[in-house]
């Protein structure tokens, strides 16, 4: 008898680019041993990834808030224009910075994981 659950039998349906979902495995708080990387370039890249992820998250949140307000009609035309202009420029700047550090969009994509369910 297998001492491990039958994982293959659990996959009901999968459609699309699974790498975008499988990548989350890296971000689960878990006890699996991890390699320690002390290469300075990698450390800098790791820090950049952290900082840019935070900034990107903030940007997405603010944008969502603004879109929601726009949807419910509680923004003036001037506000919409100003916000849109800011978000557009911020998005562009983020793409530049991400590229500068040799990162990809997918690298800035951390999930809330378990804490997401507390909200």
């Amino acid at each position: 008898m297998s001492a491990e659950p039958d994982l293959v039998g659990k996959l009901l349906e999968a459609d699309g680019d699974l790498r975008r979902i499988a990548g989350e495995l890296d971000h689960l708080p878990e006890a699996f041993p991890r390699r320690v990387n002390a290469d300075p370039e990698q450390v800098e890249k790791g820090l950049a990834q952290l900082v840019l992820t935070v900034v990107e998250l903030l940007r997405q949140l603010m944008e969502r808030q603004a879109l929601r307000r726009m949807d419910t009609g509680t923004l003036t035309d001037e506000q919409i224009e100003r916000l849109g202009d800011t978000f557009m420029k911020l998005d562009q700047r983020m793409r530049e910075l991400t590229e500068h550090f040799g990162l990809e969009e997918g690298d800035l994509n951390l999930n809330l994981g378990p804490l997401g369910d507390l909200l």
């Binding site: 944008e63 978000f87 969009e105």
Partner: peptide, 29 residues
């Protein structure tokens, strides 16, 4: 049963003005 879904990566909306950008984003959302 569990479900996970992700949308396609954010396509940069074609926009020249802020208002155009916001309209395009709202449409995407």
């Amino acid at each position: 049963f569990g479900l996970r879904a992700v949308g396609e990566p954010g396509v940069e909306p074609e926009a020249t003005t802020g208002a155009e950008y916001m309209r395009a984003r709202l449409e995407q959302v």
